[in-house]
């Protein structure tokens, strides 16, 4: 469904991704794990079109998106929940969700209400706070909002960048339960995480990145048992 081949991304003179490749099949949850600076977020931004690769190709549903503008990539069905949530702080919860549905026609009022209800059912706390400014929400609520906002575009594939960052263990569990529900709902998931243990526990497959290169890849269950992974990323 998504195939990333040999991408090289630079920030000015810094060579951030040095020929990374990975692919995600329909219906999977795939994780990119690795330490700070491994290039996980850079890879996400390149897939969404916010950054450009100098080499290689990225295809989504068989079409190359390596040179496609970010807003068009969203229209093709690829939504991202960015690192640090990046909700629109001065807008209300509901306005944020409406922004998530930006690519859909404003005339589809019924579909919009239905999707709002879908998000509110999944995250009842957002419904209670629908008229509240997003900037006043707690970190966990903002993460829920960021996920809900991305789902409003009815994506075929969801990219999640560090959804567990800065959250308490209970909230992390809640967010990961939600990711699994999203998968059950038929949306493919690409997950970037520093919390490798949690990520591997819900993933089908995973890639371990190290300083901008592919280090290891395999079935998530195998990686959980891999001695190198355990020592470097699982603290065991």
């Amino acid at each position: 469904m998504l195939s990333v081949t040999d991408i090289n991304v630079y920030y000015g003179a810094i060579h951030a991704l040095k020929g990374i490749s990975f692919h995600v099949e329909e219906g999977e949850i795939v994780s990119l794990i690795g330490a700070n600076g491994a290039g996980k977020t850079t890879a996400m931004h390149t897939v969404s079109g916010l950054l450009r690769s100098r080499t290689g190709d990225i295809t989504f549903m068989g079409e190359s998106i390596a040179k496609t503008e970010p807003h068009k990539i969203v229209r093709m069905g690829l939504a991202q929940v960015p690192e640090g949530r990046r909700v629109f702080a001065s807008m209300t919860v509901e306005e944020n969700l409406e922004m998530g549905a930006f690519i859909r026609s404003g005339k589809d009022k019924a579909g919009m209400d239905e999707d709002l209800e879908m998000v509110y059912t999944r995250f009842p706390r957002l419904k209670e706070r629908r008229r509240q400014q997003a900037g006043t929400l707690s970190g966990g609520e903002q993460q829920m909002l960021a996920i809900g906002r991305a789902l409003m575009s009815r994506p075929k594939m969801l990219l999640l960048d560090e959804p567990s960052m800065g959250l308490s263990p209970i909230l992390v569990q809640e967010i990961f339960d939600c990711i699994q529900e999203v998968k059950k709902g038929g949306t493919t998931v690409l997950l970037v995480e520093q919390n490798a243990k949690m990520a591997l526990s819900i993933s089908d497959r995973a890639y371990v990145l190290e300083t901008g290169t592919n280090f290891l890849e395999g079935a998530a269950a195998d990686l959980l048992d891999n001695e190198q992974v355990r020592r470097a990323y699982l603290g065991a």
């Binding site: 969404s48 079109g49 916010l50 503008e69 970010p70 807003h71 969203v74 229209r75 939504a79 991202q80 960015p82 990046r86 909700v87 629109f88 702080a89 001065s90 807008m91 306005e95 409406e98 922004m99 998530g100 930006f102 690519i103 906002r149 991305a150 575009s153």
Partner: peptide
Amino acid sequence: KAMQATSEDAGAAKLMGINT
């Protein structure tokens, strides 16, 4: 609304499918 979103966070606005 898209203007507001772009003003607040242009990168996030792009991820909403807004042609900034």
